[in-house]
Nucleic acid binder design. Structure first.
Lengths: 319, 319
DNA sequence: ATTCAAAATAACAACGTTGTTATTTTGGGT
DNA sequence: ACCCAAAATAACAACGTTGTTATTTTGAAT
């Protein structure tokens, strides 16, 4: 059905190997015939057959992204950035929202060049049977895996936040974040606050935002304020939580300092001045793609490795 | 590098064509050898090469989903349902969040069996150059395209809502939804309310929710209530808007009737009794997959066609 | 005009499958 | 023991490419 090299060859009165060379601009073909062939190919709407190419070259120029929890809004931006970074590196990104083993197996059958996993913990671990056969890189929270994982150092981020508040002279800190969750990122943040504040001998309180949405945080803070009052040094677990908290702040309360975890451009448009610590989606994407493509090109086997990404502290003030 | 049929054949001392047949349970191979071959294949961790298969069979058993606006949370559930429905039908779903033309072109090169497009209007139209070569189906709002599109009949849904309120005896209706937007779904809903209320000689007001989120709606209604009061017959543009509106309702206000657009399971857990009109993601997914696979199997050319899905009205009362 | 190297093009094998055709093996009937 | 059909297996062509090798064409030097 589809147009092949042979069809073009017949039309142009040349051999199909010449067409193959012409279309990839080989110096072995004369300019004149190249032009003729390219024109004909365009005219006939030739679409290269990746299966055939892949069969001989062992390359598909396609990377599979395993993203079983599409609904996690937080990583949507990351997915977009990864797509861009991969395109830049000459790869096409195909996403599967299926369960990780099914997805990876199919990627293997399709002979994709590599796999990126949005790691959600145990349930997303890929078996060695698979990872022995294709370069893999994960994005998640540091843990031992038979392939590399990119880890945003939440621990370090929270320490930065605490240090900043201490430096500013606050002796009591309020952490507002999701406390009851299985999401390991949230657990790490909470745990770090506890441990580090104790270490630095700063008093702290953990306030449950009851979720990661603006609505939930707003509601939670409202309840909290009924009986108590917030300290002046505040750490928020995420951008959305920050927004929820800000609903209860008057412009007057300028003596308060808010440090939020995250690194997204939305901070730029907040009216109230805030600090943020986090790694941007762009940096994460770049790191993922860099490491993966490096391994693909080197034909190197997957190896256990945790690659830490260190958050940067920023101050946002619209004035 | 990877294990091939020939490797297995060598190990088993048979020809590779026998291995091929054995692995697909052909009756042409004796039970004993089949077992031996299958065991060996398992042991050697054989992974079929889809490129080779696709080359000879012209089938990849893979469908591409073009989903350029991943962040649109509303369709996330739909994507999950489509994935399930496709799996049921024997296909693997690969998503691209790239721009539609790039995505479709690559799907074509990869020789996928079909394409589903989450249609967002003009910007997502695929050119005939592409659609002549692969079965396509879109999901979006009714419009003329060179391939079929599944349309949820928002128009009909809103009429149902208005009719219900009229039947209940209300003479004035408030519609709370996104009024200033380019999202054609929202525009259709608003327009229908206007036209149909006028036709039925019912007075109505359009209240701008200022967005599709719960927060926005809550805020908007709060503003509105400062100067005016809501009528007893209320139509909400979506589930989230409904949630925003409900924040301002006391359990006392039982004489009010709310009809919300949408069809998602979350309605089941709302405390206040509400009506909903909408088509469930499951139904949409089923319809998309049914039409697409039908066309794939029939080897039929894409044709311009609008397939309407009619919303169902439901009453939700936790008691 | 003839020769010969260089340039251009053609031919071919290979990639890993599938499905068809050809060959070998098996064992029941004599 | 021998023949023959049926059953089992092997061989092979084809799918659409790429890269290597073989052949033809070109045109400059004689």
């Amino acid at each position: 059905m589809a147009v092949t090299l042979k069809d073009i060859a017949r039309e142009c009165g040349v051999s199909y190997s010449t067409v193959s060379k012409a279309l990839k601009d080989s110096p072995l073909v004369t300019q004149a015939t190249k032009r003729k062939i390219k024109e004909k190919a365009e005219e006939m709407n030739y679409i290269p057959n990746n299966s055939a190419r892949s069969l001989v070259s062992n390359k598909s120029h396609t990377i599979g992204l395993i993203w079983p929890a599409v609904d996690r809004v937080a990583v949507t931006t990351l997915a977009t950035q990864v797509n861009e970074a991969l395109k830049q590196a000459g790869y096409f990104m195909a996403v599967s929202i299926d369960n990780p083993i099914t997805a990876a197996s199919k990627f293997l059958e399709l002979r994709f060049d590599g796999v990126i996993v949005f790691d959600e913990g145990e349930s997303t671990t890929l078996p060695e049977k698979i990872t022995k056969n294709i370069p893999v890189i994960a994005y998640g929270v540091a843990r031992k895996l038979p392939y590399p994982i990119i880890n945003v150092h939440h621990n370090w981020a929270m320490k930065q936040a605490v240090d900043l508040l201490i430096e500013k002279g606050y002796q009591s800190i309020d952490y507002i974040g999701e406390l009851h969750t299985k999401d390991i990122r949230q657990i790490v943040k909470k745990k770090t606050i506890e441990d580090y504040c104790r270490e630095k001998q700063v008093t702290y309180r953990l306030i449950d935002s009851g979720g990661l949405t603006e609505m939930a945080a707003k509601q939670a803070v409202k309840e909290f304020l009924k009986t108590e009052t917030l300290h002046d040094g505040i750490i928020c677990g995420s951008y959305d939580i920050t927004m929820g908290v800000l609903h209860h702040m008057d412009d007057l309360e300028l003596e308060k300092t808010i440090v939020a975890y995250d690194n997204i451009k939305q901070f730029k448009s907040i009216e109230t001045p805030v600090y943020s610590v986090g790694v941007s989606a762009e940096q994460i994407a770049e790191s993922l793609v860099k490491h993966l493509t490096k391994n693909i090109e080197a034909g190197r086997k997957n190896a256990s490795e945790v690659i830490d990404l260190f958050p940067t502290l920023q101050y946002h003030d619209k004035k």
